[in-house]
């Protein structure tokens, strides 16, 4: 939720698609999946894991997603998808950040209000 929000907010910085260095292996797969990623609502959906996924499962999911969306293997996608995948992984692979994120999306049954919700934790790694 918060992830997609702030990503849209970046519209002031134009999307820097890296020039494709080679022809895409399969356009169909990339197109199909990239729309799926954009529609994704939660970090769990970005990585395509269950909310109950274990740490090794999240790691494995990140790797397999990287193999499909990293600009080295899918230059047509331009790297934006991988950035999103990496951000999701960065949050979900860190137990503290994941717990905080779970709280913010109300996964534990009690949605938290207040400053926690408005902060874009999973995208802000620079401070």
């Amino acid at each position: 939720m918060a992830g997609t929000l702030s990503f849209a907010g970046l519209s002031s910085c134009p999307n820097l698609a890296s020039p494709s260095r080679r022809t895409a292996r399969s356009f169909v797969a990339i197109a199909e999946v990239s729309t799926a990623v954009r529609r994704a609502k939660s970090l769990y959906e970005v990585l395509r894991v269950k909310e109950t996924a274990s740490a090794p499962e999240i790691k494995a999911a990140y790797r397999s997603m990287a193999k499909r969306f990293h600009p080295d293997v899918a230059p047509a996608a331009g790297g934006a998808d991988f950035l999103e995948i990496h951000r999701a992984y960065k949050t979900l692979s860190d137990p503290t950040a994941r717990a905080r994120y779970d709280l913010s999306i109300g996964r534990l049954g009690f949605p938290v209000t207040g400053p926690l919700r408005s902060r874009r934790w999973e995208t802000d790694q620079c401070w």
């Binding site: 907010g9 970046l10 519209s11 890296s18 600009p71």
Partner: peptide, 21 residues
Amino acid sequence: DIDASDVLRVLAGVVLPGTQN
């Protein structure tokens, strides 16, 4: 922004306080 081929681009500008605009 660093892309997959390691090219660095720096983007900067003034935004309205409290927003990303």
